[in-house]
Design a protein around this nucleic acid. Structure first.
Lengths: 280, 280
DNA sequence: ATAATAGTGTCTATCAGACACTATCTT
DNA sequence: AAGATAGTGTCTGATAGACACTATTAT
């Protein structure tokens, strides 16, 4: 009964679970939504492979004493994948708590008394990386890799599914992202300091496509709308960089070079709606 | 070092915090948003008053072994206030995790080594009660009472503030509610099986008023809009009860009796937007 | 009758979607 | 020149806000 304690007031036994964090780290790579996965490869002292050995999983780990869950996430991401959210000033979004006692089924032994199994409760986060910050992409021999979300959803990964309940976490994170895209300026999290309208448009296009493959975000209408977005004081959401300071194009590609924009400093509390197009 | 454990793989000490739940339970009482609070009155064995003795706090308690956080919340609400979410089929919404090591400052002793203080991590929920389900309201001598949210925000309660970080939880819950009102059909959670359009309108009116006292939800436009809300298959969000089955008015009041409506069974995934009015 | 609430209809400004057209780049 | 992407403008139908007007109740 190692994780049961007696409450001095109630005399009820309450317990101290293992508290974990997991991160659903998204990145736009070549205008497609990708998610960071870590290959599980731990073996314990007695030589036994740990649960879901060889499976891909979301990055994460256990919260330590004196840490917030958000701090734990940042530490684990740095350790497991080299992503430095603090340095890059990237703020993780709290997604949900996953607390089903059976969620870590390998650790759950029904024959034991309550409290004698290891119940792992996880606080999941969503992390959005700006376009240019992708220290992992390319080093293909690594345990940490980005995968196209579409491929993960279609089970086109080793062992088909993710470890534990990480498939649920991914789906919940996508729902979260889909909603936030519509009713906040979170799409700009995927952009660098300077960005083009197309950069934003592809964020919407790629994510909405996951929910409805028919959706097409028309370029003209998107520009018309996004360039006019203002807050209640009339401040524009994005402003174009002065003509003389326009940087050379970032991606060498065909077509005319796009104007560079920057996000208004007031865009934090920017209420804005961008709904998927309805056909007429 | 009672709540430190050694991880067999990493040799890192990780810890097992106390995991709590708290509920921000809202109820529309006389067309105003109210929140359920519990008066803290516990004294421990040695006769010492527990932290924030005499303060009002959100209902909640510790998660037990084998429980999900949501189950713990339901149990605590039943114990502390008699609210039976299971029986009434009311589903709590996960709000956030509060994990600041200093959040329970009375239990935090900076002179002790890390791991030797009691770090309490809480998973907060939002609960919306339907209009007619209010077993507490009226029994004024109780430790559990509903307060007008406006009064709590204006510190018009005993000791002015809530216990712990419950003021933050309340504010976060209001932000959550405000957003969900706009982009989901969550307002109907406050309604009974049969309800009037005014019932819904007052939900919006009272909550939006907390954010902007100028806001006035015009009756005619609200009716025009809400009665036309359809999902992608053309199903109406709410339908009127057939004329012969219209119940007698619930609240005796002035004015014409309102038609009763019911929520479409398909309203769960109903995407709908109801934004606060912009002046013209 | 009067006040209060419920409900419908209409006018108008704004906005979203479709799409034409121009501009600027690479190959 | 051809193809591709960027960006602007216009037409049209839908919608939101303002508000008039009717209906139905209690007092």
């Amino acid at each position: 009964m190692e994780n049961l304690k007696s409450d001095p007031i109630t005399n009820f036994n309450y317990f101290r679970p293992s508290l974990a964090v997991d991160g659903v780290v998204f990145s736009m790579i070549e205008n497609e939504l990708n998610v960071l996965l870590i290959k599980r490869s731990a073996i314990d002292r007695s030589g036994v492979k740990r649960p879901y050995f060889g499976y891909w999983a979301l990055p994460g780990g256990f919260v330590r004493s004196g840490e917030t869950t958000s701090e734990a996430l940042k530490r684990e991401l740095l350790e497991e994948s080299g992503l430095d959210l603090v340095k890059k000033k990237i703020r993780p979004y709290q997604l949900k708590v996953y607390s089903d006692p059976y969620r870590d089924s390998f650790n759950f032994d029904k024959t034991k008394l309550p409290g004698n199994h290891k119940q792992v409760i996880s606080n999941a986060f969503v992390v959005l990386l700006p376009r240019s910050y992708n220290p992992i992409f390319g080093s293909d021999a690594s345990d940490a890799q980005f995968f196209k979300v579409k491929d993960v959803l279609n089970k086109k990964i080793e062992n088909k599914v993710l470890a534990f309940d990480h498939n649920d976490m991914l789906k919940d994170a996508l729902m979260y992202l889909n909603e936030k895209l519509m009713y906040s300026t979170i799409a700009l999290d995927f952009c660098d300091k300077y960005f083009t309208v197309s950069d934003i448009r592809y964020v919407y296009q790629s994510i909405w496509s996951l929910f409805d493959s028919e959706i097409f975000v028309e370029l003209g209408n998107f520009q018309n709308k996004i360039l006019k977005q203002k807050d209640e004081n009339g401040n524009l959401l994005i402003s174009s960089v002065p003509a003389d300071k326009q940087q050379p194009r970032k991606q060498s590609g065909k077509g005319a070079p796009a104007k560079l924009f920057y996000k208004s400093s007031k865009a934090v509390n920017f209420s804005h709606t961008m709904l998927p197009p309805k056909k007429r």
